[in-house]
């Protein structure tokens, strides 16, 4: 395809996309009878929920990185039992829906262990879920380091810990960072499911506003916009990281 064809192509795509988007907006705006007044009164509910979503996601990201790293290292442990345990965790969590995990871990496990704080429980469950995915990213990153480098590390006389610190992690990080940024966006979206535990985050806020005002669309449109405001910057960061690391390799 020539450069001119490419330009023409993108211009046509742009116009078609614009027309489609305008059509949808028109239909929504025209067909719905908007009642923003009721919803506007609940703006602080939205705001508080949005802030809660931010800190819950941030806490879950931090904790799931710790879980993921522990699990990735455990999968390379010299003891088979530890490796199997870690592999079992990853397969179990990645093979079941988050909703099911939330229900079981919250109403059965958290209840049995006496964990009363639903926010703490929510963050931990979300981190257990996300940690399984991060563990796989980290495992991939660690395994991307060539065997010859591990050989060199041994020849120099580095210990296992030093090999991770000086050789494996600095090289693995370029493989891990881009998908990790993507996972951060997923955590933000997945945190919406915590609403079923009665955690007053962004989605629960919108549900409350909806049941108080009966203005469904007016309650949920801000919800979509609020999530996008968080996930778009993170996605852009992920793409930027991908580009940068691809260039360096």
């Amino acid at each position: 395809m020539t450069a001119r064809h490419r330009t023409l192509n993108s211009v046509i795509s742009f116009i078609l996309g614009g027309v489609l988007f305008a059509g949808i907006c028109y239909a929504v705006l025209r067909l719905a009878t908007w009642q923003w007044d009721g919803v506007w009164e609940y703006r602080t509910v939205f705001w508080k929920g949005w802030i809660t979503t931010i800190w819950i996601s941030a806490a879950a990201l931090l904790l799931s990185v710790i879980f993921g790293l522990t699990c990735a290292l455990a999968r390379r442990a010299p003891y088979p039992a530890v490796r199997w345990l870690a592999a079992g965790y990853v397969e179990l969590i990645r093979g079941t829906p988050l909703l099911v995990q939330l229900l079981i871990l919250f109403y059965v496990v958290a209840d049995a262990t006496g964990l009363q704080n639903r926010y703490a429980a929510g963050v931990i469950i979300l981190s257990i879920f996300s940690g399984a995915y991060i563990a796989e990213m980290m495992r991939g990153g660690i395994e991307s380091v060539g065997k010859s480098h591990l050989d060199s590390a041994r020849a120099i006389g580095l210990t296992r810990g030093q090999t991770y610190r000086y050789v494996i992690f600095p090289q693995a990080i370029r493989h891990i960072l881009p998908p990790l940024a993507g996972q951060a966006a997923s955590i933000i979206k997945d945190s919406s499911l915590l609403s079923i535990l009665g955690i007053a985050e962004f989605t629960l806020a919108a549900q409350q506003v909806n049941s108080a005002t009966y203005s469904t669309l007016e309650s949920y449109l801000p919800l979509a916009v609020g999530y996008l405001a968080l996930t778009l910057p993170v996605s852009l960061l992920a793409r930027k990281l991908e580009g940068r690391f691809r260039y360096e390799t």
């Binding site: 010859s148 480098h149 060199s152 020849a155 000086y166 050789v167 090289q171």
Partner: peptide
């Protein structure tokens, strides 16, 4: 070694 033994 033969090759690739520096840390990149």
């Amino acid at each position: 070694f033969q090759s690739w033994n520096l840390f990149p």
